[in-house]
Design a protein around this nucleic acid. Structure first.
Ligand code: MN
Ligand code: MN
Ligand code: ZN
Ligand code: ZN
Lengths: 140, 140
DNA sequence: TGCCAAAACAGGAATCGTTATTAGTTGAAC
DNA sequence: GTTCAACTAATAACGATTCCTGTTTTGGCA
């Protein structure tokens, strides 16, 4: 059993949630995708193996996986939520033409959170970069 | 007539759109709000003066105002789109408890766009900061 | 192994923010 | 004043997500 796999099992055990076949299938679909699928895309992939799964189950599985820290969610306007197995802090860019999402490597903006905190009386809980552009394939 | 007012008229004239009473009312509602209302909030404010306006008209007005550069839109997950009369590049933070939005002053991250561009083959079109936290009033 | 309660699921209805449709109104240009 | 494109009101439709209900599966335990 791989290290990540053991890590996932640990997170499930600690959380009290059970690693059901549906939740495993969602994880597998994420792993087999090219990185940042939507719930609908995951649903379609999962249905190929098990046609009885419901879309609502995929959403519920994703929310559990996020809660226990196995996956991250990313949001762009004009796009359904994307899910990411890479839970390290990193920056993703979305193509406004085809919807493809890729990571932008080597982005170091320091710790956004701590750089913004001195300038606001709010207690910052989240600070993220949302980046859009046109991917190489869509540049004509 | 104030400088901003003249500026708005210029933008309408140049665009070919007409500055109708409904669009003016949407602008007034934005100006009278405390900064970052949703379409629904703007709609409610506009309806007080003119009960016949439709929500769709508010959305259409806002989309025209954004297109000609009079207002900006900001997006957070778990919140309807917020509209902002301040079209200067700046950072806004949203309270996850009450939904209030305020600006974070003196944020200088350099030009995000040009700092990210060297690290991706995408042609970047948008780069924004999305920040959430708990406002002073909601800190118990 | 068989039973039970709790958790998870499938299917479908409901919700929310937003956009599209359509018929009617307005108002600037002639 | 007439005309015609732009605009509006009302309402239907939409996509993403959540909620609900009855059924199935699961893990704990006799
Ligand atoms: Mn990523
Ligand atoms: Mn602002
Ligand atoms: Zn593309
Ligand atoms: Zn608050």
């Amino acid at each position: 059993m791989s290290r990540v796999e053991q890590d996932i099992r640990d997170k499930f055990r600690r959380s009290g949630y059970t690693l059901t076949s549906q939740r495993r299938a969602v994880l597998d679909a994420l792993r087999d995708s090219d990185g940042h699928p939507s719930a609908e895309e995951i649903y379609l992939a999962v249905k190929k193996k098990n046609p009885r799964v419901a879309l609502g189950t995929v959403y519920q599985a994703l929310s559990v996986l996020e809660e226990i820290g196995v996956i991250d969610t990313k949001h762009w306007s004009d796009s359904p939520t994307r899910y990411d197995l890479n839970t390290e802090p990193h920056c993703d860019i979305r193509c406004v033409r085809c919807g493809r999402v890729d990571e932008i490597p080597d982005v170091d903006l320091g710790d956004l959170h701590s750089r913004l905190q001195p300038n606001t009386p709010y207690e910052i809980t989240e600070a993220a970069l949302v980046v859009e552009g046109i991917c190489p394939a869509c540049r004509t």
